Amino acid sequence: MSNPAFKRMTAEEYLRREREAPEKHEFIDGFVYPLHAQAGASRQHVRLTVRIVSMLEELAVARGCRAYVSDMKLRADGWRNFFYPDVMVCCDPDEAAQDFETDSCLIVEVLSGTAAAHDRTGKLAAYTKLPSPQTYLLVEQNERRIYAYAKADGEWVLTEYEDGIIPLPCLETGLDVGRVYGGLVG
């Protein structure tokens, strides 16, 4: 895709082009943006992402859910936005014919570089408008801190964790902060 950010397109056109593209792009209000991680994520980012998805995979499967790492798109706000979360868990019926998910109960972004601001603002706004997410986690990669946005009585509440267990209602369990960072961050 040459200069994709400068041409407005439909979601259907984006999906068709994305299937053939050598690199991943996100779709926001009709415009296509290359992912910030095109040059490659840091070693710490990758290790944290793998650690989290490996902790969630068995729990997800046991409850009839699916855990994904950053290659699966999440459709947000109708057909207006498509994102590639670092990790997500989906518990709705599996639509194997689709190359994206629409109902994620848990979304995780590992914060890094210039993408961190978008994860904290634009993606936060898009993800918290969706009806299905119960938890949105922002994971620091250079310090032991996870920001957990949890839906409680229809409102989103932020709690910061440096230790302890983060409740994950859709998996009926919690995520141990110590295990997430063990051996990676002091």
Rank of each mutant, 00 (worst) to 15 (best):
A116V: 05
L175A: 03
T49S: 14
G164T: 10
D103L: 15
V177T: 04
A60L: 05
C170T: 07
V157C: 12
E23R: 13
D77N: 12
E18R: 03
K123P: 02
K123I: 06
Q141A: 01
R179P: 00
D92E: 14
W156E: 06
V139W: 01
L171D: 00
F27K: 08
S54E: 13
A117K: 11
E13A: 14
S104W: 01
A11N: 08
P22I: 01
H36K: 12
M72E: 07
Q141Y: 03
Y181Q: 07
R51L: 03
P22C: 02
A60K: 05
E18F: 03
R63K: 14
H45S: 10
C91M: 00
L175W: 04
A41L: 08
I146V: 14
R8S: 14
A116R: 09
L74A: 02
E13W: 07
A152L: 14
A116M: 04
V110H: 02
A60H: 05
I28G: 07
W79D: 13
V50P: 00
Q141D: 03
E13Y: 06
A67E: 02
D153R: 13
R145P: 02
G183R: 13
L106I: 04
E23C: 02
D92I: 04
P169W: 00
M72R: 10
E23D: 13
T102G: 15
R51M: 03
R144N: 08
L74H: 01
A97T: 10
L124P: 01
E23H: 10
L137F: 06
T114P: 11
D119C: 08
M1T: 02
E57W: 08
Y181H: 09
K151G: 09
A116S: 12
V185R: 03
V89R: 01
T173G: 04
K24Q: 12
I107H: 06
N81W: 00
A37Y: 10
D176A: 10
V180G: 04
Y84M: 11
F31T: 06
R51T: 14
V32L: 06
Y127H: 01
L35S: 09
L184P: 00
L124Q: 10
L137W: 07
G174L: 05
D153Q: 15
I107V: 15
E143K: 15
K73W: 00
L168K: 01
I165V: 15
